[in-house]
Amino acid sequence: MMVARGLVEEIAAALAAQGLIPRGGFRFAGDEAAPTGASGGAAISVLLVGQAGVAPWSHFQHWLERQHLPIVNPLDTWSREVIGTVAKNFGARAVSPSDRPYLPFQQWAMRAEGLKPSPLGILMHPKYGLWHAYRAALLFEDEIALPVADAAIHLCDACVEKPCLKSCPVDAYSGQGFAHEACLDHVRGPHGSPCRIGGCLDRNACPYGTSYRYPPEAQAFHMAAFAKL
């Protein structure tokens, strides 16, 4: 069954009220072990939901100010609430990158938008650079009309200097991967205030998508969540 064309546009309008956007999608292959949709049947189509830049930040902050009790993971909670409402209104099941068991969100994103990982592991977007995120996926038990993703230019291939690998004082990112403990110790330690206040120095050193860079307060929020400060 093909759902009427224009559904993605309607979903986009609903998401825009919270600063969120559709982030591409695809149809699961017939032999693929797809997750379930809203009624428990196998999903046929998936539409990713996320952000470009800091557009959702003010909406999230206004929501957070209205909460009367502390919330352990407020951004995840907000995302589930607002995207869950959109999913329900359009007959889909919303799943989150932090749901257990984990779903292959990065692989889905690469498939949906044709992106590749940067040296930092974050997918490099040809317009947004490293300043974007995926907040959920909408799972449909019908085939929906989705835009076809063009092959995206991978900006990292043209970046010779790789400043994203030269700005961290503890060399957290390298060809050997991410040195999680070294990064965590530094951020929590006496010399980690630049990272705590303004975000990851390696990420901020990337020359692409700078007009979408998160403001310091948003970066500090994410860094505090990473370090559990």
Rank of each mutant, 00 (worst) to 15 (best):
residue 4 A to K: 08
residue 4 A to S: 06
residue 5 R to W: 01
residue 6 G to V: 11
residue 7 L to Q: 06
residue 7 L to W: 12
residue 8 V to K: 05
residue 8 V to E: 09
residue 9 E to Q: 07
residue 9 E to V: 02
residue 10 E to G: 12
residue 11 I to K: 09
residue 12 A to V: 01
residue 13 A to G: 13
residue 13 A to M: 12
residue 13 A to Q: 13
residue 13 A to R: 15
residue 15 L to N: 10
residue 16 A to C: 04
residue 17 A to W: 02
residue 19 G to A: 08
residue 20 L to M: 06
residue 23 R to D: 04
residue 24 G to L: 11
residue 24 G to Q: 08
residue 25 G to F: 06
residue 25 G to W: 04
residue 26 F to R: 07
residue 27 R to C: 11
residue 29 A to N: 08
residue 29 A to H: 10
residue 30 G to L: 11
residue 31 D to L: 03
residue 34 A to S: 15
residue 34 A to D: 10
residue 38 A to P: 05
residue 41 G to N: 02
residue 44 I to Y: 02
residue 45 S to K: 13
residue 47 L to Q: 10
residue 48 L to Q: 01
residue 49 V to R: 00
residue 49 V to G: 03
residue 51 Q to I: 07
residue 51 Q to K: 05
residue 51 Q to F: 01
residue 53 G to H: 11
residue 55 A to Y: 06
residue 56 P to Q: 14
residue 56 P to Y: 12
residue 61 Q to F: 02
residue 61 Q to A: 09
residue 70 P to Q: 14
residue 70 P to T: 05
residue 72 V to F: 07
residue 76 D to F: 01
residue 76 D to P: 00
residue 76 D to M: 00
residue 77 T to A: 08
residue 80 R to M: 15
residue 81 E to I: 12
residue 85 T to F: 00
residue 88 K to G: 13
residue 88 K to D: 14
residue 92 A to D: 02
residue 92 A to Y: 05
residue 93 R to V: 02
residue 95 V to N: 14
residue 96 S to P: 01
residue 96 S to L: 03
residue 100 R to G: 12
residue 102 Y to W: 15
residue 103 L to R: 13
residue 103 L to V: 03
residue 103 L to Y: 12
residue 104 P to N: 01
residue 106 Q to S: 03
residue 109 A to N: 08
residue 111 R to M: 10
residue 112 A to S: 11
residue 112 A to Y: 04
residue 112 A to M: 05
residue 113 E to N: 03
residue 114 G to S: 03
residue 114 G to W: 07
residue 119 P to V: 00
residue 120 L to P: 12
residue 121 G to F: 08
residue 121 G to H: 02
residue 125 H to M: 03
residue 126 P to D: 11
residue 127 K to C: 08
residue 132 H to F: 11
residue 134 Y to Q: 08
residue 135 R to V: 04
residue 136 A to I: 01
residue 136 A to G: 02
residue 139 L to I: 13
residue 141 E to M: 07
residue 142 D to K: 07
residue 143 E to S: 05
residue 149 A to S: 10
residue 150 D to I: 09
residue 154 H to W: 10
residue 165 L to R: 09
residue 166 K to R: 09
residue 168 C to N: 09
residue 175 G to A: 05
residue 177 G to F: 15
residue 181 E to N: 07
residue 182 A to N: 05
residue 183 C to Q: 05
residue 185 D to T: 07
residue 186 H to I: 07
residue 188 R to N: 09
residue 189 G to P: 14
residue 191 H to G: 14
residue 193 S to I: 05
residue 193 S to P: 00
residue 195 C to Y: 11
residue 196 R to M: 05
residue 202 D to A: 14
residue 202 D to T: 06
residue 204 N to R: 15
residue 206 C to D: 11
residue 207 P to R: 13
residue 209 G to Q: 06
residue 210 T to Q: 15
residue 211 S to L: 05
residue 212 Y to C: 11
residue 215 P to D: 05
residue 215 P to R: 08
residue 217 E to A: 13
residue 219 Q to A: 09
residue 223 M to V: 12
residue 224 A to Y: 08
residue 224 A to G: 15
residue 225 A to G: 11
